Amino acid sequence: MIYLDYASTTPMSEKAIEAYTKTASLFFGNTNSLHDIGTGANDVLTLCRRQFAHFINGDEKGVYFTSGGSEANYLAIRSLIKGSDASNRHIITTQIEHSSILNLCGQLEEEGYTVTYLPVDKWGMISLSDLQKAVTSKTTLVSIQHANHEIGTIQPIQKIGRFLKEKNILFHCDCVQSFGKLPIDVQLYGVDSLSVSSHKIYGPKGVGAVYIHPSVSWNSVYRNANHQSGFRPGTIDVPGVASFITAAQEAYSRIEEQRELHEQLRTKWMTLMEPFKKFITIEGHPSQRLPSVIGMTIDKIQGQYVMLQCNRHQIAISTGSACHAGLQHPSKTMTAIGKSNDEAKQFIRISFGTNTSYNDLKHLYTVLRKVMEEFHCVTM
């Protein structure tokens, strides 16, 4: 089967699998245990923290491992606001965040917080002036994703971070889609916390990470948690973490090579789509975007139908975030960029990985052409 859904999840790399197996065999101890086996496992975890901090130009004391990106977002935001002035109960985010952020913001509103959801333009980009206008004396935290999970648009994180630093407002950044694909520098970006996920970069599922700058105050969501400085309870999955960091090392070693490859594939895909530009709209920012993520809407054809037809021809694509799969409501990203509900349901997403080839795209082109012929969009 041709796999074009890498933004949803990736297969584990051989090196990540090998790292998991070796670590599980040799360093199976509980990192909180005081015997030598526990100490060995803790030494591995320390090295992993140090390596992760290196990837983002952070401090290893601020690295905490989680069960994935969604939990990372939840714990980062909850921990930061618990450590903040309780009288400041205003949060700013965007209309196109991942569901883990939007669902949490909905919970916080029920708890008495005020949440401002910044609008985005037709490309999915926020306006810095809108953010500046939204800030009040009660704003405690801003959460804005680095790169969108459905259309790939990259937000101006450095400018946002610089402004928020001047205002002494906490800045959380969801980097689940960008980690391993774009350089990330928490010092340069002025980010107080960020979240990432292992399974987006060929590591195991069930592993993620949070970074919180050590100078930032936070309080644990959990009472009397005794792992990871109280950030999260439960025995740490050291083999999973080691496998994740191994996958991250691979990703960062070829970050420019992969970006160039995906730019080339994207250019070729745009050429293939040229005859259909009357019927297909490529969504997202034309330049400030991940080259590996292409969101499209196809006039008069529901994305779910296109996805099923592709699946029938052994091609895996998606209709947006996997966290929304099976739900009836349209993509929030699509409606936020100005699509009607019907137009939003015409959305499909393809995303490239290390094994994507031009032949894969030509196969997809053939299937899409047949689908559009069926709906009288084009003729042979």
Rank of each mutant, 00 (worst) to 15 (best):
248 A>D: 09
224 N>R: 05
363 H>F: 01
294 I>Y: 00
146 H>R: 11
207 V>G: 02
195 S>E: 02
66 T>W: 00
289 R>E: 07
375 F>L: 02
91 I>D: 02
184 I>F: 00
180 G>P: 01
112 G>Y: 06
59 D>S: 03
102 L>T: 15
142 V>M: 04
210 V>T: 12
96 I>P: 02
78 R>I: 10
297 T>P: 01
30 N>H: 10
35 H>L: 15
180 G>E: 03
62 G>E: 09
190 G>R: 09
33 S>M: 06
34 L>K: 15
272 L>S: 08
376 H>P: 01
256 E>Q: 12
168 N>F: 00
318 S>I: 06
348 I>D: 06
11 P>A: 09
244 F>N: 10
204 P>T: 11
54 H>L: 02
201 I>F: 01
256 E>Y: 02
334 M>S: 15
190 G>Q: 10
354 T>F: 01
263 E>I: 15
210 V>P: 07
234 G>Y: 02
299 D>N: 11
135 V>C: 01
307 M>N: 04
15 K>F: 05
309 Q>Y: 07
56 I>V: 14
377 C>F: 15
286 P>K: 02
176 V>E: 09
128 L>W: 00
334 M>V: 11
341 N>Y: 01
178 S>K: 06
41 A>H: 00
44 V>W: 01
132 Q>C: 09
146 H>I: 06
134 A>N: 02
321 S>A: 15
186 V>A: 05
378 V>Q: 01
86 A>D: 09
235 T>N: 06
115 V>K: 06
337 I>F: 03
85 D>F: 01
18 E>F: 05
4 L>I: 08
104 L>G: 13
34 L>M: 13
354 T>E: 12
178 S>Q: 03
266 R>D: 07
204 P>F: 00
256 E>T: 13
159 K>Y: 05
140 T>W: 00
211 Y>R: 12
296 M>K: 10
218 W>G: 11
289 R>K: 11
226 N>F: 12
31 T>P: 00
163 F>S: 08
74 Y>L: 04
212 I>S: 04
315 I>K: 08
303 G>N: 06
331 S>K: 02
95 Q>R: 06
232 R>M: 10
97 E>G: 15
142 V>P: 08
288 Q>S: 13
79 S>A: 13
189 Y>Q: 14
37 I>L: 15
284 G>R: 03
270 M>P: 00
352 F>H: 08
165 K>T: 11
193 S>Y: 00
361 L>V: 11
346 Q>P: 03
167 K>R: 11
97 E>K: 06
192 D>W: 01
137 S>H: 07
255 I>P: 08
373 E>N: 12
302 Q>T: 05
252 Y>L: 03
300 K>A: 07
